[in-house]
Simulated assay, not measured.
Amino acid sequence: MIETTKAIVINTIKYGDTSLIATCYTNSCGLKTYMLKGVLKAKKAKVKTAYFQPLMQLNLTANHNNRGALNSIRDVEIINFYGTIYSDIKKQSIALFLSEVLYYSIKEEEKNEALFEYLETSFLWLDMHSNISNFHLLFLLNLTKYLGFYPKLNSVNLLYFDMLEGRFISSSSSNTVSGEKLDQFKRLLGINFDAIHEVNFNASNRQNVLSILIQYFELHLEGFRKPKSLNVLKSVFN
């Protein structure tokens, strides 16, 4: 079926010498994977490799096949051009890291307009702002709302956070966070990106919270892997 939809690039891998396989999150039908035949050698083709950088926002006209099958793209254009994400080293590192997180987190081939809007508006915010050192932390935390395991905020004043249950508890058990690390984690709860400048983490704080979030994703998402770009991200923000 031929469909036109907005899409966000999540991942690309090389296929053979001349082709790419691109995974995108679409507004109309969730996660879709496309075969881009000959795109690496065709200089005048409508579909260009430059369109498929991490988190690029596109408008696709595509032939969508049955669930799980590779799809093909008939036409593509860039929408919501980024002005800084691919030229700023910190934003580049965030984009690469978050594209890996999304690749391991989103599996559903079904429409979820709320999730798509969150991705779309978040990446535009990243592009337009300069105070972005903690962006990836808040992005991951708020992403859990759409994936179904945002922390339960009742009893938030208790001394331990049970990552497996996603709730605050009064005594320590396995997979709990407490003390200073928990205090840092709590500073992100309930805020949006426009309030992120109020969270003054140093490099150590940032690494502590990132480690908590990565473990939280690992506990709740089957098949989730630590992104290969994690060390690069840590290095850039140290």
Score class of each variant (00 low, 15 high):
Thr18Leu: 07
Ile21Ala: 06
Lys37Asn: 12
Met128Gln: 15
Ser235Trp: 10
Ser130Gln: 12
Lys32Ala: 09
Val39Met: 05
Phe149Gln: 03
Glu109Phe: 06
Cys24Glu: 01
Arg187Val: 04
Asp88Glu: 12
Ile196Trp: 00
Gly223Val: 05
Val39His: 04
Cys29Thr: 09
Ile79Lys: 01
Asn112Glu: 10
Tyr15Lys: 12
Phe185Leu: 11
Trp125Arg: 01
Leu31Asn: 07
Val47Cys: 04
Asp88Trp: 02
Phe116Gly: 07
Leu153Glu: 10
Ile132Gln: 02
Ile212Asp: 06
Lys152Asp: 15
Leu230Met: 14
Ala45Val: 04
Lys41Thr: 12
Ser172Pro: 08
Ala22Lys: 00
Asn202Arg: 05
Lys226Val: 09
Pro54Val: 01
Leu143Tyr: 04
Thr12His: 01
Thr23Ile: 07
Asn231Met: 13
Asp88Leu: 03
Glu120Asn: 15
Leu55Tyr: 00
Phe193Gly: 02
Leu40Glu: 04
His64Tyr: 14
His197Ile: 09
Asn65Gln: 14
Asn142Cys: 04
Leu230His: 08
Asn27Glu: 15
Lys181Leu: 11
Ile191Glu: 11
Cys24Val: 11
Phe168Trp: 08
Ser72Lys: 13
Asn208Leu: 11
Ser204Gly: 11
Ala203Cys: 10
Glu108Ser: 12
Cys29Asn: 14
Met35Asp: 10
Gln184His: 13
Gln92Trp: 04
Asn63Cys: 12
Thr26Ile: 03
Lys6Arg: 15
Val76Phe: 06
Lys48Phe: 07
Ser178Arg: 05
Pro54Ile: 01
Asn63Met: 14
Leu137Gly: 01
Leu55Lys: 00
Thr121His: 10
